[in-house]
Simulated scan of single mutants.
Amino acid sequence: MFEKIQRAFWKALTPDLVVDESKAVAQAVSGLAPNVVAALGGVDNLKSHQPVALTRMRVELRDVARMDRQALTAAGVPGVMMLDGGVVHLITGLQP
């Protein structure tokens, strides 16, 4: 709590030197990181998700066009396998 008050104090004195904390746009979903959820088109684009194996997550999307493959790669998902009906397999590898 003290840290928040101290940060607000310095922000008021030097607004251009204290960087605002970024607000997370995407919400975390059980088993999926927020940046992966954002790359899949957001929480409202997910119909369902479930782990298939130790190295793979099966996700069903409402609109496949909202998925961003480059953002998934940047989020640490090395492989994406597209199936019919909006089903996507995220090949994640063994997560530590």
Rank of each mutant, 00 (worst) to 15 (best):
V59A: 03
L94E: 13
Q6M: 11
S48I: 01
A75W: 01
G31M: 10
D16E: 11
G85R: 13
V88L: 09
D84F: 12
Q70W: 01
L46P: 01
T55I: 04
L61N: 05
F2K: 09
A65T: 14
A38D: 10
A71K: 14
M1A: 13
A74F: 02
A53D: 11
L40S: 00
Q95A: 14
G41I: 12
L72R: 07
Q27A: 13
R62K: 15
S48C: 01
A71F: 04
K11I: 00
M81T: 14
V88I: 09
P96Q: 03
S30W: 09
G86L: 07
L61C: 02
K11W: 01
E21L: 12
P15G: 10
K23F: 10
Q95V: 14
K47S: 14
A24E: 12
A53E: 05
V64W: 04
P78R: 12
G31W: 05
I5R: 06
V37E: 04
M82R: 05
V80R: 08
E21C: 05
R7E: 14
L72H: 07
R62M: 05
D84P: 01
M82Y: 01
V18L: 14
A71E: 09
L61P: 03
T73S: 15
V59K: 04
T73W: 01
V43D: 10
A65N: 13
V19A: 15
R58S: 09
P15N: 11
M67C: 10
G79V: 04
A12R: 12
G41F: 08
Q6R: 11
K47T: 14
A26S: 13
A12N: 13
V80W: 04
L83G: 15
L90W: 06
A33R: 15
V80K: 08
G42Y: 07
M57C: 06
D63Q: 08
T14H: 13
G93Q: 11
R58A: 11
A12Y: 07
Q70H: 07
A38H: 10
V19W: 00
P51I: 00
V18S: 07
A74M: 05
M1I: 08
A28E: 15
A24W: 03
D44T: 15
K4I: 12
V88G: 08
V59P: 03
T55S: 09
L94W: 00
M67A: 13
M82I: 15
T73Y: 04
L46E: 00
V59G: 04
F2P: 07
L94G: 13
G79C: 01
D63K: 13
L46M: 03
M67N: 11
E60Q: 15
V29P: 00
R66A: 15
G79P: 01
L90E: 07
M82P: 02
D63L: 07
G85Y: 10
A8Q: 13
D68A: 01
G41L: 11
L61A: 05
V18Y: 04
L40C: 08
E60P: 00
M81E: 14
L61I: 04
D68I: 06
D20L: 02
H89D: 12
A74E: 11
G42A: 03
A24C: 01
K23N: 12
W10H: 10
K47C: 05
A75P: 01
L40Y: 05
N45C: 05
D20K: 11
P78V: 04
E60K: 10
L61F: 02
D84K: 12
N35L: 07
I91S: 10
L83K: 14
A39E: 05
P15L: 12
A8H: 06
P15T: 10
N45I: 08
M57Y: 11
A26T: 07
K11H: 13
V29T: 06
